[in-house]
Amino acid sequence: MNSLIKEMQALAQELLASGEVKGVFGWTKGSRWYLTPPLFIQKAEDAIKLHYDEFAINNLTSLLLDYRNSDDKIAIFVKGCDSRGILRLIQDKQVNPEKVLVIGLPCPGMVDKEAVKDQRHVHDLPLLRKCQECRYPNPVLADRTLGDVQVTKEPGVPIGITAERAIQKGVGSKGKERYQEVKEIEALSADEKYAFWQKQHEKCLRCYACRNICPACNCRECIFESDKKGWVNKAATTTDNAFFGITRAMHVAGRCVDCGECERVCPAGIPIMKINRKIMQDIDELFGTYDAGTDLEEAGPLNHFKLDDPEEFL
């Protein structure tokens, strides 16, 4: 890991010093041992602040939206799941591939900082569930890679210098069970499902963290931001919250890259991925397996019309 960090720092240093890029998105060591938050640097001498470890959970890709019309080229470090976000942004024409330098990293598997028992002393933490269910531990797209990792669009097992450890930890070991949670909810009765989601939406603060962290949520103006149209109210009532929650999920349908960031950032602990996964599962069933953000050439099943699209409702 240390040599990988050195490589990252050296590359960022070189990119900034040569002027090839005007900024670099990466991670840095946070104020506590279990924090590795995002970092944006513009000076070569700041490259030394870059850090990467099993706490670098943040998907940085949505931050690129701040540079969507910028002339400056920006470099960004990505894990496997993050790279799908970049691909989506490129597909949505929100990121000009000429203006971004994607640096793929091998993912060691991220751990669950919610399980920290002693914030003063370093101790082992369990692997995040999303990493156990990971299907794309390797970058699906990268201009450069560090640490032996290979770019591959195929779902599979981790590749790269940390691969062995990651596999040992269980990265990707439960990829086939990723719809398990969906099945559990599907097994409930309609009333139980309704009660379950009402309870979840009741908690929503309408902080919009889930929306803002999401690389698929890239509208210039969100309907939830402007109450001009009167489509939705600012009131944080269960009904309005549910309207937001469901609309958000439907809006990213077929574009969600399964990075799980929405659920991670939710301060109210709403299991947002359950609904995202339900939609993914439905798309898989209706249109054949489709993983958003893995193929630049393929428009998602919900973004085009095909003659053999299912149309039982007609």
Binding site: D92, K93, Q94, N218, C219, R220, H304
Partner: peptide
């Protein structure tokens, strides 16, 4: 145009 993000999905369909 104020809202259009220029994604081009409309063009393809």
């Amino acid at each position: 145009e104020a809202v259009c993000a220029g994604c081009g999905l409309c063009i393809s369909v």
